[in-house]
């Protein structure tokens, strides 16, 4: 088992090398401007003078979406071990999971009714 993880690790290392390799090749190949200017490093804002910093406050619905993602993913994660043993354990596992999912879907109905995920 560990050997497979080591293989995956080696795979990731090779992909890292590729990314760094491209950046390295570009470092060697790319041109350098003779004259640098402040305007060149201004943030792109369609030709306008950048107005303030880019970091701004976002709407709370982003947070709500992330929250629901975590909750639903937790649900899915619990379903993975269930999926593996479903055949083996039979009807009892099936009923347990169905009730698990149904209770969660109640929450989904509530979200829908309250329009908490309305994205306008």
């Amino acid at each position: 088992m560990q050997s497979a993880w080591l293989s995956a690790l080696a795979f990731l290392v090779v992909s890292t090398l590729l990314g760094l390799g491209v950046l390295g090749a570009a470092k060697a190949l790319r041109v350098r401007a003779r004259k640098d200017s402040r305007i060149k490093h201004l943030t792109y804002e369609c030709g306008e003078q950048p107005d303030g910093l880019a970091w701004m406050q976002f709407h709370a619905r982003y947070y709500v979406v992330a929250l629901f993602f975590v909750l639903f993913d937790v649900e899915a994660v619990f379903l993975f071990p269930w999926a593996v043993v479903l055949r083996e354990l039979g009807a009892q596992a099936f009923i347990a999971a169905v009730s698990f999912v149904v209770v969660l879907m109640l929450g989904w109905f509530y979200v829908l009714r309250k329009e908490a995920l309305q994205w306008q």
Binding site: L67, F68, F78, S99, F100, V103, A116
Partner: peptide, 16 residues
């Protein structure tokens, strides 16, 4: 396991 579903449900409602 089943209680967990209730917990998650409570979390969803709380989030809303």
């Amino acid at each position: 396991f089943e209680a967990l579903s209730l917990l998650l449900l409570a979390a969803i409602i709380g989030a809303v």
